[in-house]
Amino acid sequence: MNFRYRRWLATGVTLVAVAITLSMLKRTDESLGDASTFTGWTLLVSTCGLYLLGLRKRWITLRCGPVAAWMQMHVYLGTFACAVFLMHIGWPVRGLFEGILAATFAVISLSGMGLALLSRLTPRWLAAISQDYRLERIPTLQAKLAANAHRVAIESAQLGEGATLSEYYQRRLLPFFQSPRSLLYLLSPGGRRRRQLLRELDDLDRYLDSGGVENREELAAMVREKDNLDYHRALQTRLRWLFSLHVALTWALALMITVHVILVYKFQAVL
């Protein structure tokens, strides 16, 4: 079974499950039944299924299918849970505790959707760059690049064509090489600054001799590499932050769900 077929199958199963749940919800409502209990238990079971991925990752000794398959199940089960969640909650959500619980679930759901989306788009974006970098190593590489750029700038100043390149380096490139990119760039990385710097470097050619042009070209290459590193770092950091957000709230969510279920049955009407 190839990936594409599996995706279509999982999508179909999810849609059928949502349709069945909707139908049963309607039937329960028409029967003057307790629709909240029905959707609540469905949501609880599906949420518990979502936690299985974490167990599978932790218990590596259990060879019960590849993690990728579990991940796919997690994604589609999460989609189903989101649909049931919308059926379960009333709108607007009332009550402080209920509101926090719903908000937590919503944050986890949205971050999960974001992860599902970005985990498919990010590799495609990263593939546009010829080189791949591991996130842990990027700071070291950036530091080394900054040191090399600084060295080239000093050499250029010693070549005697004036302080044109070194002045420009000090004014424009030094902050670029030694400062981290802004939060906005982390959220939405782009190449505007890279193109601007390269254009300015090209404009310096009229003031440089052949040695200076070589240094300018070397600095331009470094600008490209620094921007690539920044781009890699932004995309990977964004993915990691989203994942951290997705994971960090899971235990709190489990705790609140437990309290919610206890409260529901503690305060349930006595027949």
Binding site: S244, V247, A248, L249, W251, A254, L255
Partner: peptide, 9 residues
Amino acid sequence: RRIRALQIA
């Protein structure tokens, strides 16, 4: 991440 999740819980 696990430590962070535990802290929040």
